[in-house]
Computed example of a mutant assay.
Amino acid sequence: MSQPSIRRQIILLGAGQVARHLGPALARAGHTLTHVWSRTPASAAALAAEIPGALPTTSLDLTTLPPAGLYIICVPDGAVAGVLAAARFPAAALVVHTAGALPLSVFDAVAGLRGGVLYPLQTFSAGRQIDWPTVPLCVEAATAADQQGLLQVARSLSQVVEVVATPQRQTLHVAAVFACNFTNHLLGIGHALLQEAALPFALLAPLIQETVQKALDQPPFTVQTGPAVRHDAATLARHQAMLAPHPGWQQIYKQLTASIQEQQMGAGANKQEPPRL
């Protein structure tokens, strides 16, 4: 990515997975990260050590934050309100969160604060490299000037940057949970079942890759396959019996089967059919 036209002095509040990926990426993009704060001092020190020139904050109570051009809150969604309530930001500071589900209005509780959102639509895990130019970054701010500033920061990281208002971003987050988190859980179930059968998970790799690619090429509902869509009652019953040792997974199987069949019935009802006598 090109260097940002306006370099920012940034303080990170949080040292979890999002911050551990975002902080170094911002530094590589030419921004100056001066400090890292965390409720766990060791985590702040570890992340600051990975960012040239950054220092861990010396205060845990957030009342003596150093000045910065931008404060980025990278803590779990449920902790954002607590950070905002505890922190003493400089007057008219620009503070953003990185959460998909939290509204922009979470900043309304702090008088005089300029709030915004910088939401990276990606999953972050230790030991994984992120291709930042391909990561969609969703930006939102209360004013046009702050929105423009956040767009500049986002564009210094990614080639896929969108202004996304709270309602759409929250819908995007729900969709991402289905597409990423739930899908990964289902893959985990498949992995565990193959382990029980002493079979390698790699056997599923071509199937998984084709399924994902097909869903990216066409609307996923239109390319649904499997015993549920075929109403193969014998196979469905056999699978459910095999899952009896795992009643939770068996229930997931039943619910997903019902969902697939309901969706297919709805799609069929919407098709134009010739009149019947």
Rank of each mutant, 00 (worst) to 15 (best):
S2P: 15
Q3S: 12
Q3R: 15
Q9N: 15
G14L: 00
A15V: 05
A15H: 06
Q17I: 00
Q17D: 14
V18R: 03
V18S: 00
A19F: 00
A19T: 00
R20W: 10
H21P: 04
G23C: 06
A25N: 04
A29C: 00
G30N: 14
T32A: 13
T34P: 00
V36L: 09
T40I: 02
A46Q: 09
A49F: 01
E50Q: 15
L55S: 12
T58I: 03
S59K: 01
S59A: 04
L60R: 11
P66R: 02
A68T: 01
G69T: 07
L70H: 00
Y71W: 09
I72K: 05
C74I: 02
C74Y: 02
A79E: 08
A81H: 06
A81D: 13
G82T: 15
L84E: 00
P90Y: 09
P90A: 11
P90H: 08
A93R: 11
V95S: 11
T98V: 14
A99P: 05
L102E: 06
S105K: 05
D108K: 01
A111E: 14
A111I: 03
L113Q: 10
G115Q: 13
G116P: 09
L118R: 01
Y119L: 02
Q122A: 04
F124A: 02
S125W: 05
A126V: 13
R128N: 13
Q129C: 02
I130K: 12
T134I: 05
T134D: 14
L137C: 10
L137I: 13
L137P: 08
C138M: 09
T143H: 03
A144R: 09
D146W: 07
Q147K: 15
L150M: 08
L150K: 00
L150W: 12
Q152D: 13
R155H: 10
S156E: 01
V164P: 04
V164S: 07
Q168G: 01
R169P: 14
H173N: 12
A175M: 04
A176L: 09
F182C: 02
T183F: 09
A192R: 08
A192W: 04
A192S: 04
E196S: 10
E196I: 03
A197W: 11
A197N: 07
L199I: 06
P200S: 12
F201L: 13
F201C: 12
A202E: 15
P206T: 05
Q209L: 10
T211Q: 11
Q218T: 14
P220W: 04
T222M: 03
T225G: 09
T225C: 08
P227N: 05
T235F: 05
A237M: 07
R238I: 00
H239D: 08
A241N: 11
A241K: 15
M242I: 02
P245H: 07
P245W: 05
P247R: 04
Q250W: 06
Q250C: 12
Q250K: 12
Q251P: 07
Q251S: 11
I252D: 07
I252H: 12
A258C: 06
Q263V: 05
A269T: 07
Q272H: 12
P274C: 01
P275M: 14
P275W: 05
